[in-house]
Design a protein around this nucleic acid. Structure first.
Lengths: 254, 254
DNA sequence: GGACGTCCTATGTCTATACATAATCAGCGG
DNA sequence: CCGCTGATTATGTATAGACATAGGACGTCC
């Protein structure tokens, strides 16, 4: 049996599947789960059974099953077995593009403009947005993104200078703050709030809109080690922007 | 040297909760990356170097590094090394609550109302929304969700009866179509479009709003094996609803 | 100097083995 | 019937060794 597998390897690569064995196994199992043949709650074969049917070592199938468990596709219990997880129906992967990159991808002219920049001691409201108690220095920025000569988004941003001191040295008239932060500050969590609103006067002016205008507002807060790095509100005219989210139950390769 | 490692473990090393060695190593590396000591682009130690400094086998550090690579935290190149990846913020997990469940969770009274139901041959526009060419039968539903006596959402739905024939038999005056579909029709994939818009006359009336009103509109299409099951547009008054999304780069524990 | 081939090396994958751990189950005593 | 105990078993973690492979470094040849 082992000999059979070895001869396969000796022959060279696996014919139609030039992948690694564990990737082939994983694709196999994912297919069975996605197709519904192994429904949620189904007990998938034990490691030693998979070892036999694939003629490989336990480490290999263990790598596959650990990966599926880490991805939330299956749940494992000692002494009991591994089970297909119930799909959590209520979440989707939301694509939040970098504005500059997104516009560039569409092949449209991009421009950026810093409207205002202030450095100050955090006000009470600032502290609230940054989720902290004791005062600190913040950088308050307001800027515009322009695509094809038309204002595309208004960005109002608060940066916690205690967490990112170098931000005070950056020339944000040239680099959009989002772009700079993304490239220079690691983060480990982000939260978004997405709402619709009627544009207020500031937004109307910045986006050159006429009176009753609906806007999509995305507010994002980004954490690093339990401290909020930055809090940003981006306002898009309703006719220029939409968010899209695509979800595949396992959330894995498609 | 194996002895050295054992003694280390015996000593306890008393980190926070360093259960498995590879988890401790992973936490170590993540900490270095998150803290900024290893900035994006930094070449992290080679596997054999980590093997030495942690006194473990290469399989163990390989498991850690493979995991970090799979999570997108680092990038690896043969013969070259492993590098801290530039953080790409392009996706977040979007929580899309079931309307009824969400309202119930808030402890508010929930009511549901079917406004209209039509069965017809698909129009050109219907076919477009369902992403197909040849005509088929569709079910067109319009309904309202009500929380605390106030209209909370307007739902306009198209169901492809070729894919879900039993839907024509269901009494949607009692069961919201979303609830029934979720419970009875398996699906592969879903796509959401989120936009803001000024309420049109239909929405104004259904949601009892006054003239200039911004609404959050979520359009969702749900697939089963490359065929669209249903296409739905849900309109929320801007003051009653917001979407939130929270994202942690895979596996980066805080 | 430029094209080409060879060697070197870090990662990629796989194996066989080992012991640890958690949870279940059967059996036993009360 | 209850509670305890120990055996059983699937998963969890770790090891050492092996070979494959990509791609950069470097020297050779023209």
């Amino acid at each position: 049996m082992a000999a059979a597998r070895v001869s396969k390897l000796a022959n060279g690569k696996a014919h139609a599947a030039p992948q690694a064995l564990y990737q082939r196994i994983r694709a196999d199992l994912e297919e069975k789960i996605l197709s519904g043949r192994w429904p949620p709650g189904y007990r998938i074969p034990f490691e030693h059974e998979l070892v036999e049917s694939y003629n490989c070592s336990r480490m290999t199938v263990n790598k596959v099953l650990s990966g599926l468990a880490a991805a939330g596709v299956i749940e494992r219990k000692r002494r009991v077995g591994s089970f297909v997880a119930k799909p959590l129906v209520q979440s989707a992967v939301l694509h939040i593009p970098d504005i500059q990159a997104e516009i560039a991808k569409r092949g449209e002219a991009y421009a950026y403009e810093l409207l205002s920049r202030k450095r100050r001691k955090a006000t009470k409201d600032d502290l609230d947005r940054l989720g902290i108690d004791k005062s600190c220095d913040v950088l308050v920025l307001s800027c515009r993104h322009i695509a094809k000569g038309r204002p595309f988004a208004l960005e109002e941003r608060l940066i916690n200078l205690d967490v990112v001191p170098p931000a005070s040295e950056i020339d944000f008239t040239r680099v959009p703050p989002g772009t700079w932060l993304l490239g220079h500050v690691p983060w480990n969590e982000a939260e978004h709030r997405i709402t619709a609103s009627l544009a207020d006067d500031v937004a109307l002016k910045a986006l050159t809109l006429k009176k009753p205008a609906a806007c999509l507002v995305v507010e994002r807060r980004t954490w690093r080690k339990n401290k909020i790095i930055t809090s940003v509100r981006v306002t898009y005219p309703n006719d220029l922007y939409q968010l899209t989210a695509r979800f595949t139950p396992t959330g894995l390769r498609s």
